[in-house]
Nucleic acid binder design. Structure first.
Lengths: 205, 205
DNA sequence: GGACTTGTCTACCAACCGGTAGAGAAGGCA
DNA sequence: TGCCTTCTCTACCGGTTGGTAGACAAGTCC
């Protein structure tokens, strides 16, 4: 009973991202991923030659979706602060719509450079654009002067660290606070980033 | 060739924390943990009846060490800000001395409420003391008024999220920057916490 | 010297893992 | 009709895992 190949592929990737994020790469099994999409493990291996290949597909899919969301958030924004705010808001909204995303990214980081590069490669255009943006802001005196690469790294860890640690502790503290807590957390990160960008004198967009 | 039981126990727990943090609970095997301390897996199972029992011992040991470090940091500090600063500095120093600690705590969070509670229980006296401290600061107008439980939760995620995401990305970006990056990160978290505590008018300890 | 405790080992097990081999069902196309 | 591609399956394999059973060595205490 063959079904649409591409839809199956996408379903497997989505489920794998979910289970890799929730259980970790090693603990998630092809058996369980297959079962969740109504298929045997051998069918999963038909679409993806090995577990590792499946992981790579997941990393690419997650990277692409994040890159798309960020690119869309930058449309129609003008000032430096508007743009930074729009990106952060978009990432947080993505995390709200797709709760397994932060956990998966975190797992990708844990798996080491090889896995993470596959994710980062898809985001490289976005990353270069962001560094240019920060550099231009510094040149114009609207962003405090500092190493733009390190600044971006800092902003990244602030957002991802905040998101993932929040999802972890939401599971501990209680899931009903989840959305409220995420919104609060977004405001915190926002003010943190504002502080990191603001030039010493205090003029800002 | 029997050896000192308690020393063996401690060595197994230390190694297990290392491997649980680095590889994750599931991926870390009793075989490997045993091998790293020069013993067969059956000897590990002699000291800890099951892998789960070993995990609990690790959570308790990590919680106890963190509680000790925090308690010691509070000695000899007076103002509200001094105390908050001392705790953050102590936690960062612990992370510097014991790099596997943040990763292990993070893994503990991932394993769900059951595991995390075992860790949190040991820290409960510290937690209660911290909430009292924050409440007293608010009553005296030295800390911005807000829900102290949620504030502590926020501070926790800021510190742990920053620490763990930093160790992850240090592995990606390059380990030579590790110490420098950790110090930079501590300053960032410090300013973030300062901003979270400062009352709206601007008076602070 | 004999019983007991403590520590470590070899040998083994059932369960599960990722992956291979190959059969069979369904549809497109000549 | 018959061939070929696409998709899914059962059956199996070697390796690893957490855990059990039980032998054995070295104190310790009487």
């Amino acid at each position: 009973m063959p079904r649409d190949g591409q839809a199956r592929r996408d379903a497997i990737v989505a489920e794998a991202i979910h289970q890799f994020g929730r259980d970790g790469y090693r603990a998630a099994s092809l058996d369980h991923i297959g079962a969740a999409v109504g298929v045997r493990k051998q069918t999963v291996l038909y679409y993806f030659a090995s577990k590792d290949v499946l992981l790579e597909a997941c990393l690419e899919a997650a990277g692409r979706r994040l890159a798309f969301v960020i690119a869309k958030a930058l449309e129609g924004t003008e000032t430096y602060w508007d743009r930074a705010e729009a990106v952060i808001h978009a990432v947080f909204r993505l995390a709200g719509d797709w709760p397994e995303f932060p956990m998966f990214v975190r797992e990708a980081g844990r798996l080491g450079p090889d896995a993470f590069d596959r994710f980062a490669d898809v985001l490289d255009p976005v990353r270069l654009r962001a560094i240019e943006f920060l550099q231009a802001g510094m040149d114009q005196g609207e962003i405090r002067k500092q190493d733009p690469v390190l600044l971006l790294f800092t902003l990244y860890t602030a957002v991802v660290g905040s998101l993932t640690e929040a999802s972890v502790l939401n599971a501990v503290v209680g899931a009903d606070k989840s959305r409220q807590s995420l919104r609060l957390r977004e405001r915190e990160v926002m003010s943190f980033v504002r502080a990191a960008l603001r030039p010493p004198q205090g003029a800002e967009g």
